[in-house]
């Protein structure tokens, strides 16, 4: 039996983490930090699912969390490959270097 997790507090924590990640992705200029902030956002979603699953006494929330972890890992591995190429071409990990595509 799962011990009781207060739902609202749990969701609030998840929302705060999510916002921190969102702010990070928008303000950081270093692409590696942006990827880390994306991880924070995805894990905040995972936390929200776990809290919601605990509220309904279902395992679904935790199952979702495992899927989120797996997909986040896949996403980051592709992201790192792209960052390698970016570093190869621009010799920097600053996203401001990506400015060729514009109106």
């Amino acid at each position: 039996m799962m011990t009781h997790i207060p739902t609202n507090e749990g969701l609030l924590l998840a929302a705060i983490l999510f916002l921190l990640g969102l702010i990070g992705t928008m303000t950081r200029r270093n692409i590696i930090y942006i990827l880390m902030c994306l991880e924070i956002m995805l894990n905040a979603c995972g936390l929200a699912f776990v809290v919601a699953g605990a509220k309904w006494m279902q395992a679904d929330g935790q199952v979702m969390f495992i899927f989120i972890l797996a997909m986040a890992a896949a996403e980051v591995s592709v992201g790192l490959a792209l960052i390698l190429q970016m570093h190869h071409q621009h010799k920097t990990v600053d996203v401001n270097a990506l400015n060729q595509l514009k109106d």
Binding site: L11, A15, A48, A52, G53
Partner: peptide
């Protein structure tokens, strides 16, 4: 970056609906 942000926004929405 944008697809990952949108995917996590979508997920958070799903989490709230599920909650």
């Amino acid at each position: 970056v944008m697809a990952a942000v949108s995917a996590s926004i979508l997920l958070f929405g799903f989490a709230l609906i599920y909650a």
